[in-house]
């Protein structure tokens, strides 16, 4: 018997498939994790808004049957702030990439975290500008090659989770497409959070980052994630030499702070109390 894939009801039918993503790209795996997380939490699609910027990952809103807003490069979080503040009942997910969120959109990223606007920010980190052909991004590790770094980059990379926590985010976690079960749980936690919540999803780009840095095909790049990531809890028990050079995954920060729209409602109440 043929049964419908459980994620199918959340996808938009018709001419939008196949996706723009290359074979072996990790973004579809992240999309699947997001859909399952939303389904498990039982959030009605009509209340879901997916806002994105520009780049490979930012094409996701077209495929998912939510209210969707594909904005301009770097500005997704600023648009999403307007959506959420205008209608706090809406559940707002921001889909963004390493270039979109941390270079052109870096200012909006830190300020939304500082305000603690209730946004679930899924940052699909592939360490490269994919859409434009493989230029280096704020998360390209120093020395790695890109089309604009033919001899390797001279720049240090951002840690998006540390940046978000420093700026005031109430939740920050890093997962991988290799560890998609764990990633889905992180997204579920982030969606349930009231405040600015970041999930950084490490998503390989075999077409550009992988090719330019001779990392092998998609399977090898996902294998690399398995071998080079350590969960934060496990890492805490290991001596430093065992964790050197590894990427730490897991939930780094989970705090309770009154969210922005709730604080603003207090301002409305105060202003209306003073009204003659």
């Amino acid at each position: 018997m043929i049964t419908m894939h459980p994620s199918f009801e959340m996808l938009r039918p018709g001419k939008k498939f196949p996706t723009v993503w290359c074979p072996g790209c990790g973004h579809g795996i992240v999309q699947g994790a997001i859909i399952r997380a939303v389904q498990k939490l039982g959030i009605p699609r009509d209340q879901m808004v997916m806002v994105s910027g520009i780049g490979c990952s930012s094409r996701m809103p077209v495929y998912v049957d939510f209210n969707s807003l594909h904005t301009a490069h770097g500005r997704a979080i600023a648009f999403a702030t307007g959506v959420k503040l205008h209608n706090p009942k809406l559940h707002v997910i921001v889909i963004t990439g390493d270039g979109d969120a941390l270079a052109i959109g870096g200012n909006h990223f830190i300020h939304a975290a500082r305000r603690n606007v209730e946004l679930t920010v899924i940052l699909l980190n592939n360490n490269i500008y994919g859409m434009t052909g493989g230029q280096y991004s704020p998360t390209t590790p120093i020395g790695k090659r890109a089309s604009t770094a033919p001899y390797g980059t001279a720049e240090r990379d951002f840690d998006p989770c540390a940046l978000a926590v420093a700026a005031g985010a109430v939740f920050a976690a890093r997962g991988t497409v290799f560890g998609v079960v764990e990633l889905e749980k992180m997204i579920q936690q982030a969606l349930a959070k009231r405040g600015f919540a970041l999930v950084e999803a490490l998503s390989p780009c075999p077409t550009l980052y992988g090719r330019l840095n001779r990392e092998g095909n998609a399977v090898k790049m996902i294998q690399w994630q398995k071998e080079n990531t350590i969960n934060a809890k496990a890492a805490a028990k290991l001596p430093p030499e065992k964790t050197a050079g590894k990427i730490i995954t897991g939930v780094f920060h989970d705090a309770e702070v009154t969210p922005y729209t709730e604080v603003y409602q207090g301002i409305i109440d105060k202003a209306q109390g003073q009204k003659q």
């Binding site: 807003l69 904005t71 600023a78 648009f79 307007g82």
Partner: peptide, 20 residues
Amino acid sequence: IQMEDEIAGIATMLGAGAAG
């Protein structure tokens, strides 16, 4: 809302406008 720059100002305005 007072945003972090004018680009964010118009962006948040358009986000709110799109939301209704």
